[in-house]
Structures are given as C-alpha cells and as structure tokens.
Design a protein around this nucleic acid. Sequence first.
DNA 1: CATGAATGAGTGTTCATTCAT
DNA 2: AATGAATGAACACTCATTCAT
Lengths: 212, 212, 212, 212
Amino acid sequence: MEALAHPRQRRKEARPAELTAAALELFVEKGFAGSRLDDVAARAGVSKGTLYLYFDSKEALFKAVIQEGIVPILEAGAGMVDSFTGGSADLLRGVILEWWKRIGATSLAGVPKLMISEAGNFPELAAYYNDTVIIRGRELLRRILQRGIARGEFRAVDVETAIDVIFAPVLMMLVWRYSLGACGCGSHDPATYLRTHLDLALNGLAVAKEQT
Amino acid sequence: MEALAHPRQRRKEARPAELTAAALELFVEKGFAGSRLDDVAARAGVSKGTLYLYFDSKEALFKAVIQEGIVPILEAGAGMVDSFTGGSADLLRGVILEWWKRIGATSLAGVPKLMISEAGNFPELAAYYNDTVIIRGRELLRRILQRGIARGEFRAVDVETAIDVIFAPVLMMLVWRYSLGACGCGSHDPATYLRTHLDLALNGLAVAKEQT
Amino acid sequence: MEALAHPRQRRKEARPAELTAAALELFVEKGFAGSRLDDVAARAGVSKGTLYLYFDSKEALFKAVIQEGIVPILEAGAGMVDSFTGGSADLLRGVILEWWKRIGATSLAGVPKLMISEAGNFPELAAYYNDTVIIRGRELLRRILQRGIARGEFRAVDVETAIDVIFAPVLMMLVWRYSLGACGCGSHDPATYLRTHLDLALNGLAVAKEQT
Amino acid sequence: MEALAHPRQRRKEARPAELTAAALELFVEKGFAGSRLDDVAARAGVSKGTLYLYFDSKEALFKAVIQEGIVPILEAGAGMVDSFTGGSADLLRGVILEWWKRIGATSLAGVPKLMISEAGNFPELAAYYNDTVIIRGRELLRRILQRGIARGEFRAVDVETAIDVIFAPVLMMLVWRYSLGACGCGSHDPATYLRTHLDLALNGLAVAKEQT
DNA sequence: CATGAATGAGTGTTCATTCAT
DNA sequence: AATGAATGAACACTCATTCAT
C-alpha cells in the first residue's frame, strides 16, 4: 500500500540493498578484486557515482555485502535443537538438510566461498564473520553431537574436531560450486552428495552396527 | 666442483625453481591478483625483467607454480596404491596421511585455497588444474574405495560421491588454515583432526562392526 | 546560451576532436611509436585516463585521427568532379590545388608521411587507409584522366599508372616537408612547386601543342 | 684464396657488414622503433651482446646502416652525364633507368623510405644524408635539365623545382613499395610505371610537339 | 672475441575514487 | 539524490643496455 503510494521513497530506502545484492552476485562470480564497480553499478541499474553515496569505498561495500548476507544465515539455525525430541541422527540430518535448504539453495550460497577467498585480505571482517556465524554454527553442531553421545546414540568421538569434520563436506560442496565447479570440473548432484555424506557420517558416528 | 666452475650456469638452471618458490609464497599470501610481479621478483632476489626470461606472463608463472608443485606428488601417489597389499582401510589412511605429509605440511599447503579463490578468474588454469590434479586425485581415491568394496572391507557406498565426501574434510582443513583460520578463528591440530576424520570415515565405510 | 548552460556537455562533445587534434600534432611530430599517450593527453589538457574514455587504445586513437581528418575531405572532393563543366586540364589543376588548400596547407599535411611511416607496423590501419583514402583518391584522378582522354584533351596514356605518376610529386612534397625537409634540406615554395608540376604534367598530357 | 685460408679472420672483418645488413632488412621491414635488437642479432646469427661489440647503441647501428647504404648509392650516378653525347631526353631516361637498376631493384631499395621515416628522429643523420646523397643527386638532374634547355631540347622550365618534380614519382614508387604497398594496396609494375612517368615527363619537357 | 643472463626505466592500460553539474 | 566525466596511482610487460663468464 504505502509502497505503491510512495514508489520513489521506497526506492530510496531499498537502494543500499539493491546495491549490495548486485555486488554480492558479482563478488561471488568474479571475486572482490575481479569485480569492477562499473559493473556493480551497471547491474544495479545506477551510475558508478551513486555507489559512493551509499558506501565510502569498495571495501566498505564488501563489508556491507557480507554483513547483510550474514543476517539470514544466522536466522537459519536456531531453535530446532532445543525442541527436538527424536533420535540424534535424525536431528543432525534434519539440521544439515535445513541448512542446505536455507543457504545452499539460495543466493547466499556464494557467501562462504567469497568469505574464504577474501578472509586474508579482510581480517577484521573475517573475525566478525567468525564471531557471528562460525562460532554459532559450531555451537549448534556441538550440542547435537553432545546430545547424541549423552544419549548413547553416538560414539564418544572428539566432539570439537568432529564438528568441523562433519560440516566440511557440506561447506566444500558450496565452495566447489563457486570455484572449480564453475569451470567444467564435475560436481555432484547436491541431494546425492548430502545423502552419501550423511550416510557415511551417521554410520561413522553410530555406536553399534545394525544397518543404519 | 663443477658448480663452482659454472656458477652462472647453475644459477640459470636453478632460477625457475627459485622464482616459482617465491611466487608460490606470495600467491598464497596475497592471492594471484594481489601479488605484484615486482614483489615476486624482489622476493626471489632478482629484477622484474628476469621473471620474463623464464615465464611469458603472470598467468604462465601461476601455471608453473602449480605444475611444478603438485603434479609430481600425484604421480608419486599413484604407485603407492598399486603396490599396497594390506587392508583397504590402512591404504586409505596411508594415502591421506602421505598426502598430508607432502602437501599439507609443506609450503604447498596454500595451493588448494589459492586455486579455489582464483579458479573463477582463470578458467584456463582451472581446467588445467582439473585435468592434472583433480581428475588424477579422484582416480586415486576411486581405486581405493573400489578395492575396499571388492574385498568386502567397505560397504557398497556410492563411490563417485564418496570420493569427494571423504576428501572434503582434508581439503577443507587446508582451505580453512589459509582463510578464516589465519584470522584468529580457531583451527585444529592437524593430527587430531586427521585422526578424527579417519576414525569417522573408516567407521562409516566399515561393513561390520568389530573394532575398527 | 545553451553552451553556457551545459558547459560539461559541450566539453563532452568537443573532447574527441580536441584529443584527435592533439594526437595528430604529436603523431606528426614524433611518429606513432614515439608519441606517448601521456604527452597526447597533456597537450590536450587532460589526464591520460581521459583518453581511454573516448578511445579504446592507442591504435584506435590513430584510426580516429585519420578517419576524422581525411575522409570528409575526400567526400567533398568527389562532388567537384561531377559538376565541373570546363576543360579537363583546368579540372585537374583545380582538384590538385583544392587538395593542397585543404590538406597540404593545414595541419593534416603531416598525415601522408605519417601513414607511410607507420603502415608497416599497423597493417589493419593501412588497409583501412587504403580503403577509405587511397582507393577513393585514385578514383577521383581516374575520372579526370578518362574525361580528358574521352574529350580529346589528353593523350591516351596508361590511365591506371598515370594516376600515381601524376599524384606522386604532390604527395612527395608533403612527405619531404615532414621528413628530410624538416632537417635543413632545402625544400620548395609550394606555389612554385605545384605550378611547375602542373605545367609539366599538363604539358605532358596535352594532345597537341598550342600553348597549354 | 685467402678467404678460404682464414675463414675465421674473414668472419671477424665481415661481421659489422653482416650486422648492418641484417639491421637494414629489419629497419626497412619494421622501422627503427619497431625493430628489436634481439631480432637483428638473431637474423645475423649472433647474440645480442655481440652487437654491442661493434656498435655503441641502437642509434649508432642505425647510423652505420644508413651510411653504409649510402656509399653504393653515391657510386651509382656519376660520370654518365659528362660523357654522354646523345639527346638530353635519352640521357634523362638513361640516368633514371640506371638509378632504378642500381637502387630500386636491389636491397638498397628500402633506404629512401627508411630515411624518410626516421629523418625526424635523426636530424643529424638526415643532414648527412642530404649532404652526401640528395645534393649530389639533384646536381646530376640539374645538369641534365640545363643541358637540355641549353641545347633547345627542353622548355625553359624552373630547373630547381623541376628536378624534384621529375624525381618524385621514381622515389615515391620505392617509398610506396615499402609502406602501404606492402599492405595489400595495389602498386604498379615498375617497368610500366617508369615508362609512363618518362613518357609524361619527357613530353612535358619537350619544346615542340611532334609525337614523342 | 663472444655470450646470454640480468637489469630497470619506460609505457600502454585499468579502475577505484572524486566532484562539478 | 544522482550523474558520469575526469583523474592519477598502480601494474603488467618490453626492450635497450650492461657485464660476468
């Protein structure tokens, strides 16, 4: 309603988001250094000068892209673990598949590869990403693993390490898709890949063997 | 003796390796686009012009870095599989630990992250890397998994997918170390990480449960 | 009025001509290879980067210089031949003197020597010059000679060859002026030179002797 | 004999000439700026360093090329005029055809174009060329024209100007061959071209008309 | 005498950033 | 707010020149 009443006003407020959206696309495609601000502006349908009305520099734009991309990522994980009542294997499977649905299959999918590529050049931003995304994500998995071990469903693996070992293949699939996978190197069907990974991981975690 | 008699000559032959070594360091540190040829040359103790005596372009230098660093290792790896006579679990463990010793624990450790970061901007290089490294690496793992399944040691998993699922945590540990891990985010002790991974993976692959 | 209202705009439109004018001067002075884009830009009162707003490369700038300078003149020349009604000797004299007024006596005078010097290094440009300048220029002279022969004013000379023979002295005067003539070697007063050339050439073409 | 007895010795003395010969070819082909010393050396079958044993710089090499190319040019013209007893038209024709045989049809043919292209960059050399080649060449033609006028065979044209007017087409044919002519622009058969030129010129000079 | 590895100043080109309109 | 013309620092690459062997 109001939107339609004040389209120009709405546009003005939406601008930054439109710009970061365009920038995200390009950064994911070509990396930070490889993306020209001309192209970012063109993709957003504005002039190059306009970018500088909203962001002080290319670096500031990059930070905004990441920070904006993080919010939805964060919202994904929570709640599910506390309220879950079934088996821990199902919980782990559910959380990973949910993460996939909310990140891997959306426009945010390129963020991890982007962050990995640029972390070295933006340490401060990397720290921020670590604090707000990675630590919380690890916490989620930690609780699942600890729950499974406590309930006698999982073997007593080294939890801190297992967190990353188990998440690595999921992450790597995304990273691959936006790097070598984009260049003709074969990459897998996500569903098959996730199924195979969960099969192996849950079998690996399982305390006793009776056909997972 | 001869060396002292022909120091110029000896230098000539050693130069390419000195240059690629310097380039590897810098590429890993700052990425391909972020590395200036002036700096590469300076690090190798020569002038910028000298680089062009040995490499046609910055990209050719990059290619040489990969070629010289990774290819020989893969070739060495293939032989191991052929001659191994023990259990497939030990073979898988052995190959991965060997890979770690020769790449993960050396100055080549930064290459995977480097390739992932730059693949998008250098498709030709990515294709080359795919042909000479990835395809051969997958072949190595494929043979191990098929061997294990054929010998009744491993479950009949989806081999093509399992290859990548199993290698992803190893790869990701390196990627991590050179990206977010370098920025204060906790990363793991490699020995523990590899042990945990192999424990989970081999347990996941194992056909029957009787102490892996 | 409008000019003052949109000085930026006016500049934008005038820029390419300002740049090609500066480039023409410099190319004629120092040759193509010897002219630095920095100097071209400086002479036009802009920065080097500005050149690239209007021309894709140094070579494209060269092409624009030729295109803008010579082509319009040739187009103007064609009309003259069509509408002329007097004797062919007067037509030939008129066309050559007109060519002199519009090229030989202007800043374009250096172009023939420039093209001759650079043709070898820029085959594409040479082909372009051939198509747009030389072929059309020859056509002009061809029509005049054929007209004179058809009307019984000129002897039946080998037209195709005579075209170049007759134009050579005119061209050579310019070439000379911008090469050895510029270094203290005596060169001629253009008026005397052209008069002598036309006297000789028209006398040479004349079919019967009765005071040319 | 001696040559065969001391091939190495002969080589040593012949070196500079071999180098300038190679340089002449390249300079004519690509101009001074466009020729790389690497290529000159390669064409002469020596290393780049060797060039500097004989010539202090690229510029010095160029000067040697021109000066060496001039000696044979100078030798071409002389004597003929003094001893000639026939008609002046035949003398002019003879001298020009002789020049063509000795220069236009030899490896020296590229020198005029080269000198024209580079005169601006080597004024001192241009002056030298003027003094030793051009002035003497003009003197030759001057004497022929004056002879013809004195003997009542040629009209009383402006001799100083006519010299250049008459030689221009001959020169231009060579210049053309090494510039635009090399790039697909049509150029003429020398024999036809010279015949047409001499026909026109001698007819233009002729004092009375009775079918040349 | 001859080599060719090494140099480093120089130049075409790109692109983030600025600012007058 | 928005534009886009202009800037200039930065960098890949070239090549004449040097010099240790």
